[in-house]
Amino acid sequence: MWKTIIRRVLLMIPQILILSILIFILADFMPGDPFTGLVDPNLDPAQLDAMREAYGLNDPLPVKYVRWMKNALQGDFGRSFNYQQPVTAVIAGRMGNTIRLSLLSIILTYLIGLPLGILAGRYNESILDKTVLVYNFVSFAVPIFVLALLMVWVFGYNLNWFPARGSISVNAVTQWDKWMSQLYHLLLPSITTAILGTTSIIQYLRSEIIDAKVSDYVKTARSKGVPIQKVYTKHIFRNASLPIASGFGFTIVSLFTGSIFIEKIFTYRGMGYLFLQSINTRDYSVIFVLALFYGFLGLIGTLLSDVILMAVDPRIRID
């Protein structure tokens, strides 16, 4: 298994290289540049051009790419025009917020999704199952921005239960207060993310359990005299959880990328918020590194899913 993992990691290098070229080209297609609309309109076009020249913006694409790559290999991912700071520093400043948001979202997603899926599958056709199904259809059909706005409006604005924006209160002084304040700010966006993320977990679990219930190995287990509760825990749930386990890698990635919209709507200053902001201001170096990072996450997620699947299903051997 370690051999497979190492080989897959090595394979990522050319994949990332190709990805970086694609993103570089696409970023270049965007109209405008970092100086568009930012500098004094009375500025002499010649002077503007000199500034562009100084930043290397007028160079041909391949030259820009090679220059960037050279620096990147030495750990320099460029400077943000917007913040006048190294890109790494800008992103690192936001990463903590996004990781916290994603972690809590994952926990809540599985905390809501697993029990509902198990109950709906085990007691399918019951009132409970039908209720879960309605919840599922709604959460599947509602777009992320509609639900997020609704949550902000109801729980943030009208009921005032949770802060509707930001990631920490300015009044938090002690470390403990800061943590609590961060958690408090996290709740609404992560609940929103979790509600949307549960759909596939519930649906997979439910239908896998319903299939497993009538499978022959369950008949065998029951004919051994295994009590029904044990049949569920030892046979049905384990088999039914395979697609959930293998989907875990993708779930993590989708939470990171899904948080782009959530962060925007909740004005939660994480990487997703930074990403959208950078696109608006044509902050190329930040866009580029973030897009690459999301692509890299995708590769990691795929690998993670395969590794998990290998670990839980003895039939799967990926060489």
Partner: peptide, 20 residues
């Protein structure tokens, strides 16, 4: 079940739990 009456099923692949 299993103690006084044992049962043998038709499909030997399906009737064994793939994960055990």
């Amino acid at each position: 079940r299993g103690n006084d009456i044992g049962m043998i099923f038709q499909d030997p692949l399906g009737s064994l739990n793939p994960l055990m």
